[in-house]
């Protein structure tokens, strides 16, 4: 029927409001509000500026990585080594701290190690054409393995006091440095993915890598940059986390990769690539953080909340498909 309309093809069929209303992000927003209301009824301690501010530490570091991961997954690749990069970057920071360097060098080291790790993944995937899921399972063991070799069962402690700012400092009132950084990065990544040529090519590659290449997109280069960004964000997260904990153990951020991927998928990013948005990821991060916090206030252990997250992850994808099947069955 759509084929019959000739000439004067409209730009869009649906208005902006309609599209927003039907979007995954709107659903997530509704869930977020629901969680917020439930939490505030469930616990008298929830609606407190400082408590809420504390709660943001549950997701800020993971979310920073999730932004870059979202773009990587939209392009059809994945990086499971992000948590291991945190471990290696943190270990490297501890190492240079022991050598007597100050905060600027520490931060620079963390970020550099992140970028190098990302470049390593990127080269293996884009130059050698290896599947990213296996490559990054390998580098995940390798990066964390190096931390274990350096540290064994020891830990780096005694970071300089001014270094604590990144994970413990506040920019203004209840707004922590991490929260502000999270917000700034969210905006940067939203602009990068949704408002630039680069972001457009990421979607093109994710939907059809061959078609994108045949349209003149330099697919290998774009993917390499995405691995670099993911590595860099892992380095940033390493700085924040190390500063917040004040110590480095090789087991730091263990298992985060799966939480980050869950966050990205929950945010509406298609694990097979091609679709997803940064606002979706932001909302998913906030929901996961608030659920954790809410359950914490109710003294529900974190592991139980992981059931909730797991169900949310599968349900979010399964339910629309079940409804579609039921609909088809009837019609």
């Amino acid at each position: 029927m759509s084929e019959m309309v000739a000439r004067n093809i409209p730009d869009r069929l649906t208005s902006r409001a309609q599209r927003v209303l039907k979007s995954w992000e709107t659903l997530l927003l509704a869930i977020a509000i629901l969680v917020f209301i439930t939490n505030s009824f469930a616990s008298p301690y929830f609606l407190n500026a400082w408590n809420l501010s504390d709660a943001t530490f549950n997701f800020t570091e993971k979310a920073m990585i999730a932004f870059a991961m979202a773009m990587l997954i939209i392009s059809g690749e994945i990086d499971l080594s992000v948590a291991a990069i945190i471990a290696l970057a943190s270990t490297a920071m501890g190492f240079v701290m022991e050598l007597g360097f100050g905060t600027p060098v520490l931060v620079l080291t963390g970020l550099t190690v992140g970028i190098i790790c990302g470049a390593f993944n990127g080269v293996l995937v884009t130059r050698l054409g290896l599947p990213s899921i296996v490559v990054t399972i390998g580098t995940m063991s390798l990066f964390r393995g190096i931390s274990y070799i350096v540290l064994g069962d020891k830990a780096y402690t005694g970071y300089p006091t001014d270094f604590a700012f990144f994970g413990q400092g506040y920019v203004w009132w209840v707004f922590s440095f991490e929260l502000v950084l999270f917000a700034v990065l969210a905006i940067i990544y939203a602009v990068l993915l949704h408002k630039t040529n680069f972001g457009r090519t990421v979607y093109a590659i994710g939907n059809n890598p061959v078609g994108a290449q045949f349209s003149g997109v330099r697919t290998a280069r774009v993917k390499f940059v995405l691995f670099l960004l993911t590595g860099l964000m892992s380095g940033v997260a390493a700085v924040c986390l190390t500063s917040r904990l004040g110590s480095t153990r090789p087991s730091i951020a263990f298992g985060w990769e799966l939480e980050i991927v869950t966050m990205v998928v929950l945010g509406g990013v298609n694990i097979l690539g091609g679709a997803g948005t940064i606002p979706g990821v932001v909302l998913a991060a906030i929901i996961m953080g608030m659920v954790t916090f809410g359950f914490g206030l109710l003294n529900v252990p974190g592991i139980v909340m992981s059931i909730f997250i797991g169900l949310l992850l599968i349900g979010a994808i399964a339910l629309p498909r079940v409804f579609a099947m039921v609909k088809r069955g009837r019609g």
Partner: peptide, 16 residues
């Protein structure tokens, strides 16, 4: 503590 790094390297070599 070397084990993890060795198996990681083995995976990367194997997949290549």
């Amino acid at each position: 503590f070397w084990q993890l790094a060795i198996s990681g390297s083995a995976i990367i070599i194997a997949v290549a």
